[in-house]
Nucleic acid binder design. Structure first.
Lengths: 224, 224
DNA sequence: TGACTTTTGGACACTCTTGTCCAATTCGTC
DNA sequence: GACGAATTGGACAAGAGTGTCCAAAAGTCA
């Protein structure tokens, strides 16, 4: 995380941005993200990225450097955006719920839509899985951003619910992992497929119902 | 499935096999599997495959044809082996369990080890995810082999357990998906990482415990 | 041994990619 | 408008990959 923040500062203060060509840089990274995700590291060509960004190939080399630097930039971009979104969604976790079932379902919907199903998150998972062996340091950065930073946040939320007596669990970490798994379990997982709102809500409801059957007090699951 | 069986017959009766150079063909496909999995479709070079198979590059072109035919062959190979293993494991699903908790845990361990964690299965998922968009017919074949054929088999097993009164569920398909998800939830999922037996058993136990808390009769989950 | 098939390795043409160089052009700012 | 910086497009060398061709070597079977 310290590393990431340093790099982040580097970017903010880079001469490129100060001189007003920030738009081009953004266009390049955005296009590169799309192409890397579509074709993978080896399959993505600088020419394709340049075309996608409506930019000359030379500009890419001027602005960012070689292909590897471009890739690192792309992964960091997705990481930062994804992490920010997850933090935002986590903030909506029910603190003192009136109807724990309904509130967990709505939380699950937000989590699924904003952090699991959205294109960039899927893209990142794919890139990490594919290129992780080639660039181990990418995998490390991702672990720090994603699971390393965010899982504890999720499970501490569950722990708080348990202390407040809303649910009944002994291992918050395990419960958090299982909650996420149950949420995902009922989603159509074909690559590149859109999930409509009805399916999304149904999947969230199914997952939360089973979660509350296992961990909920009294008849918390019945209302779903 | 019909398509798959036809192709399968085709292979069995191919002149290549009859003439006794079956070993070379196997070596090629086996090596190609390793290389495709390691480097992806674009990243895998015919030369690398030839070297891995201890075979001249020309022999690959003689035996199989171009790169795309080789890839199709590899995917079918993994599909067939993986499907066969899954059928074998499914046959061990508890029919009239004495101790449903323990028997489900053991089933989950077999399922995880033989069908989810093993190298080829992970490899196939990765290949499908990466190249599925480029070769949609691969994805179709996979759906027929995997989820299409096997999910119903799993859920019908759960339905039978429910009819026998061992568990209490209304939607066997949903239960099957959630069972699989819970089994997976607690596995370390870093790419390429081995899972030792202790972790495997613990993960299975955790998953089954939550599953039985949600769907089990009486105190079925307590014994775990 | 001899006929036939397969395998091998090298050479080849072709395409694609990366990264660099450079002159002409455009852009931003004063 | 004028100056400096950024951008563009084209050309280039170097490397890697695919797929083909072919003659020599090795293997197979009667």
């Amino acid at each position: 995380m310290i590393l990431a923040m340093e790099i982040s500062h580097d970017v903010v203060r880079s001469p490129a941005m100060q001189r007003g060509n920030y738009n081009k840089r953004c266009a390049i990274i955005s296009a590169a993200t799309a192409v890397f995700v579509r074709d993978g590291y080896v399959g993505a060509s600088i020419d394709a990225i340049a075309e996608e960004a409506n930019v000359s190939r030379q500009t890419i080399y001027n602005q960012i450097g070689d292909k590897e630097k471009l890739f690192v930039e792309v992964v960091r971009g997705i990481n930062e955006h994804g992490s920010a979104r997850l933090v935002a969604v986590l903030a909506t976790f029910p603190d003192e719920p009136e109807n724990i079932g309904r509130e967990l379902v709505e939380f699950a919907i937000r989590l699924t839509r904003d952090c699991l199903c959205d294109d960039n998150s899927r893209a990142l998972r794919k890139l990490i899985e594919n290129e992780g062996s080639r660039y181990p340091e990418l995998f490390e950065t991702w672990k720090d951003y994603g699971p390393g930073k965010n899982w504890p946040a999720i499970s501490s939320r569950f722990a708080r619910l348990a202390r407040a007596g809303d649910i009944d669990l002994d291992d918050p970490d395990l419960a958090a992992r299982q909650f996420m798994a149950l949420i995902r379990a009922d989603l159509p997982n074909e690559p590149g497929q859109l999930v409509n709102d009805t399916e999304l809500e149904q999947a969230a409801r199914n997952g939360v119902r089973t979660f509350l059957r296992a961990y909920g007090k009294r008849d918390a699951a019945l209302a779903l």
